[in-house]
């Protein structure tokens, strides 16, 4: 029962976010607006609201990877992936992302342990 109430509230905030996106803030995605608004509501109502939303939120987060599948399958639309430029371009993007995750985690881990907090 509480899981259902959480799901309904979360979807409600998503729709609210989408509406605000359509009429007011076209440069911020509706899902992000909904997330920030729901976060605000959590700050106002605290633990009482957590009790109601927790089950639904955990369910959505558990299946988050599933929701990415349809967008990702969209890669098949780009057959220019197969050209020489395409291969070089996509490889560069992967190398760049690889460097960020590697260097940032490494540097930050050393810095953070230096001050021994966190």
């Amino acid at each position: 029962m509480k899981t259902v109430s959480g799901i309904i509230l979360i979807i409600g905030f998503y729709l609210l976010g989408e509406t605000i996106n359509t009429y007011l803030l076209s440069w911020v995605p509706g899902s992000i607006i909904g997330m920030i608004l729901l976060f605000g509501l959590f700050l106002v109502f605290g633990e009482k609201l957590v009790d109601w939303v927790k089950g639904g939120a955990q369910l959505f987060i558990k299946y988050l990877p599933l929701f990415f599948v349809p967008v990702t399958v969209g890669i098949i639309q780009y057959d220019n992936l197969l050209s020489v430029f395409g291969v070089l371009f996509f490889s560069l993007m992967l190398v760049s992302s690889f460097l960020i995750i590697l260097l940032v985690s490494y540097w930050m881990d050393r810095k953070v342990s230096e001050f021994s907090c966190g």
Partner: peptide, 16 residues
């Protein structure tokens, strides 16, 4: 399924 990505992003406000 793609549509559910929206509410799932909203749900991330809980861990935040």
């Amino acid at each position: 399924i793609d549509w559910l990505l929206g509410p799932a992003v909203v749900a991330l406000s809980f861990p935040l």
